[in-house]
Design a protein around this nucleic acid. Structure first.
Length: 481
RNA sequence: CGGGGCGUAGCGCAGUUUGGUAGCGCACAUGGUUUGGGACCAUGGGGCCGCAGGUUCGAAUCCUGUCGCCCCGACCA
């Protein structure tokens, strides 16, 4: 008996024992993903995909609110098109997959499987845009992209992944910069208020800038093993692509001008962030706003099954249009087994209804985030559930925020920086001189990189923590996924 | 792509050293007793032992190749 309990506990490897194994256990045992037979590719199973769909809905709503429209561009990009922007192609060349044959015929020109769609979209924009009245063009695409990475990890780095990529064209630098920052803020809002993941907004260093961009901004999150994750990026592309792809418009002053462009994206990597930020030794913990199932009802069988069944049916019917709710009426599983299963899957609220509750006119609710059990009078059920889901959402954010605060340190000098990065784990705030040599030195000696230069700057000292020269700005150092 | 580890039932593993026709636990199916935190009994189904060659009378086991997975580096969302 006791032995069996231990076997179960071992079903998911504890985080502290082996974080990587914990991560794999969680995603495989909750049936979010499966491995496919293709290297570095994964199958997203319905439970994982449902989470992605909910994320899509929330993001899409925000994109529409900011005036964007969805469109779709081809998967294949002719080699000549990709090669037009030199820095861009050099950045992506090592990880591009090529199609060389169509049927048995060798192609005259190789086709690249898109690693990102800047080039093919720009080639269209040059036709679409003639006058300043055509601007801005605010397009988004939901699609898959392929990057032939050397090492892969489910959700965090896969050969093929799903994402959205926004591509916009503007009249001038100010409009483009405004758009770039607006979308970064959309991502930050989404991460914090929907996924309950606190993020640090900032600008990427020159070294970490997107290939072909003028400036790159990112939101960075901290995973529960102390490693950072770039959760979303927004790029001001400047006029680079416009000049290469000849995207010109006639302005109101009758001058021919190049457009200013932006691009921005988030991917299924966000799912990995949700798992690693919120998950615990019992498994997943889904933020209520995107949880595939927000509430699961577990009926507790009575002597008279009809008694409980009719109650559960009535309850389900009254709530089904208001919440993502599921009744687990499977035969052959005992309630305790179901409790554990749904906890592993991260469902925020579990309702138990048994003969005792029906007698008392109440429902038992259990919170996934705190484990707390609450007895809710039947007539207050709906409003209490709204409140409960909101509380859980808020509490998960607060906990993640506390973790971020607890694992963010200040490095005044190089010794402190090394100690933080190598021993304490987490994020290290430090002043730097802005010289790339310091950035490279830290990376080579500690493995940590500059995640970004936060918008919210603090004054931590007068000199660069790496070389001691006068400071330029504060950055965040961390090891990252 | 370099170094290391591993592919045997859905999952976790034993069997490989010393070749002899595949096993355990969980899960699954059926029947019964159960059911408020992972129940129990009985019966049963499921395997090209990652894949392809080779050695051998005979290969999960030995040899060669290949594909995939995991960890640590390097590279990247």
């Amino acid at each position: 008996m006791a032995k069996k309990e231990q076997d179960f506990v071992k079903e998911i490897t504890p985080k502290s024992e082996d974080y990587s194994q914990w991560y794999l256990d969680v995603i495989l045992k909750t049936k979010m993903v499966d491995y496919s037979t293709v290297k570095g590719c994964m199958v997203i199973r319905p439970y994982g995909y449902a989470l992605w769909e909910n994320m899509q809905k929330e993001l899409d709503r925000r994109f529409k609110e900011t005036g964007h429209e969805n469109a779709y561009f081809p998967l294949f990009i002719p080699e000549s098109l990709l090669k037009k922007e030199m820095e861009h192609v050099e950045g992506f060349a090592p990880e591009v997959a090529w199609v060389t044959h169509g049927g048995y015929e060798e192609l005259q020109e190789r086709l690249c499987v898109r690693p990102t769609s800047e080039t093919i979209i720009c080639s269209m924009y040059s036709d679409w845009i003639q006058t300043y009245r055509d601007l801005p063009v605010l397009t988004n695409q939901w699609c898959n992209v392929v990057r032939w990475e050397k090492s892969t990890r489910p959700f965090l780095r896969t050969t093929e992944f799903l994402w959205q990529e926004g591509h916009t064209a503007h009249r001038n630098e100010e409009d483009a910069e405004e758009e770039t920052l607006k979308m970064l803020n959309v991502y930050a809002d989404f991460a914090e208020n929907v996924l309950a993941i606190p993020v640090i907004k900032g600008q990427k260093t020159e070294k970490e800038r997107f290939a072909g961009a003028l400036r790159t901004y990112s939101i960075e999150a901290l995973m529960s093993d102390g490693k950072a994750l770039q959760a979303g990026t927004s790029h001001n592309l400047g006029e680079h692509f416009a000049k290469v792809f000849d995207i010109q418009y006639l302005d109101s002053d009758n001058e021919l001008k190049y457009v200013w462009q932006t691009s921005w994206g988030v991917s299924t990597r966000m799912i990995g962030a949700v798992i690693m930020v919120h998950g615990d030794d019992r498994g997943l913990k889904m933020p209520p706003k995107v949880a595939p199932t927000q509430i699961v009802v577990v009926p507790i069988p009575a002597k008279d099954p009809e008694l409980v069944n009719s109650k559960v049916d009535a309850l389900y019917n009254s709530l089904k249009t208001k919440f993502r709710i599921k009744v687990d009426d499977r035969d052959g599983y005992r309630p305790g087994w179901k409790f554990n299963e749904w906890e592993m899957k991260g469902v925020p609220v579990r309702l138990e209804i048994g003969p005792k509750d029906i007698e008392k006119g109440q429902v038992v609710a259990a919170r996934r985030d705190t484990g707390e059990k609450i007895f809710i009078p039947e007539e207050k059920l709906e409003e209490t559930l709204y409140q409960l889901l909101e509380d859980i959402q808020k509490n998960m954010y607060e906990q993640a925020k506390q973790f971020l605060a607890d694992n963010t340190y200040v490095a005044h000098n190089y010794d402190e920086l090394k100690e933080i990065v190598e021993e304490k784990r987490g994020m290290a705030k430090a002043m730097v001189c802005g010289d790339e040599a310091c950035e490279i030195k830290v990376k080579e000696e500690t493995g940590a990189t500059i995640r970004n230069i936060p918008f919210e700057q603090e004054d931590l000292g007068e000199v660069c923590a790496v070389c001691g020269k006068p400071k330029k700005h504060m950055v965040i150092f961390a090891k990252s996924y």
